[in-house]
C-alpha cells in the first residue's frame, strides 16, 4: 500500500513539479547508474534536491532509490517520520554520534547489499544557499565498507538553482530552471584522503561547467 502511495506521489506530484514547474537542464544523464549497488552523491541546498535526483531515474527504479537522510531532522515527529520513511523512502542516519555502540552505517550497508541506489549529500545538511560546503567523510566510510568487487560506483551530481527555487527555511516555491551536471563515477581506491580529494575535485569541476547569474 505504501509502495503504491510512494509510486503515485512521485508519478503525480513530484514529476510534474520537477519537470514542468521547475524544469531541468540535465547534462550527461547516461552516466547515472542503471542499477544498484551504487551511490549518487550531490551537493545539498534544498529539500527539492532529493526529489529532483529521484526524478532523474526511470520510475521502475523507484523501489531501489534510497535517500540517506538525517534521523534527528526527519524522524522528529510521527507524521514526518511516516512520510520520510514510507513515501520518500529514506534511510535514517544518526548524525554526530561517535561513541554509540551500534553501527550508524549498518542500514546503509544492508541497502547496498540489497542492490539499492543510495542518494547521499556529503555536506551533511542543506548548506548556505547555492554554495557548496565542505564534504564530510561519511562517503569514504561507506566506500570502505564495500571493498569487494565489483566496487560500488559513486556518481557525483552537481545541482544548481534548486536553492533559489526553494531555499532552506522558506516554504514558497519560485520556479527557476535548474541545472543538473552528472560526472563520471568514482571508485574507492583504499585511501580516505585521496578519495575525499577526488570527490571535492570532481564537484568543483562540475560546478565550473555552468555559467550562473549572480544571486545575492
Amino acid at each position: 500500500m505504501t509502495k503504491l502511495l510512494r509510486f503515485l506521489f512521485f508519478l503525480l506530484i513530484v514529476r510534474p513539479l520537477v519537470l514542468v514547474i521547475i524544469g531541468l537542464n540535465v547534462r550527461r544523464r547516461s552516466l547515472l547508474p542503471a542499477q544498484g549497488p551504487a551511490v549518487v552523491i550531490a551537493n545539498h541546498n534544498s529539500h527539492l534536491d532529493t526529489l529532483v535526483l529521484i526524478s532523474l531515474f526511470p520510475l521502475c527504479l523507484l523501489p531501489k532509490l534510497r535517500p540517506v537522510a538525517a534521523m534527528d531532522y526527519f524522524l522528529r515527529n510521527r507524521w514526518l517520520a511516516w512520510f520520510a520513511l514510507n513515501i520518500i523512502g529514506i534511510i535514517p542516519l544518526r548524525r554526530g554520534v561517535k561513541a554509540s555502540h551500534d553501527d550508524p552505517l549498518a542500514e546503509v550497508v544492508v541497502a547496498l547489499d540489497n542492490d539499492d541506489i543510495l542518494i547521499l549529500f556529503p555536506e551533511g545538511s542543506r548548506g548556505e544557499t547555492e554554495r557548496v560546503g565542505r564534504f564530510k567523510t561519511g562517503i569514504a566510510h561507506i566506500a570502505q565498507r564495500r571493498p569487494e568487487v565489483p566496487m560500488v560506483p559513486m556518481v557525483p551530481v552537481y545541482l544548481h538553482g534548486l536553492g533559489m527555487a526553494l531555499p532552506k527555511g522558506d516554504f514558497v516555491l519560485v520556479p527557476f530552471f535548474c541545472d543538473v551536471f552528472v560526472g563520471e563515477a568514482l571508485h574507492w581506491q583504499g585511501d580516505r584522503k585521496a578519495f575525499m580529494n577526488g570527490v571535492t575535485e570532481c564537484m568543483t569541476a562540475l560546478s565550473g561547467e555552468g555559467r550562473f547569474p549572480a544571486w545575492e
Binding site: 538553482g161 533559489m164 514558497v172 547569474p213 544571486w215 545575492e216
Partner: peptide, 10 residues
C-alpha cells in the same frame, strides 16, 4: 534563470 536576481526578491 538567465538574469541576476536578488535573494530578497523571491
Amino acid at each position: 534563470s538567465m538574469i541576476p536576481t536578488r535573494r530578497v526578491d523571491r
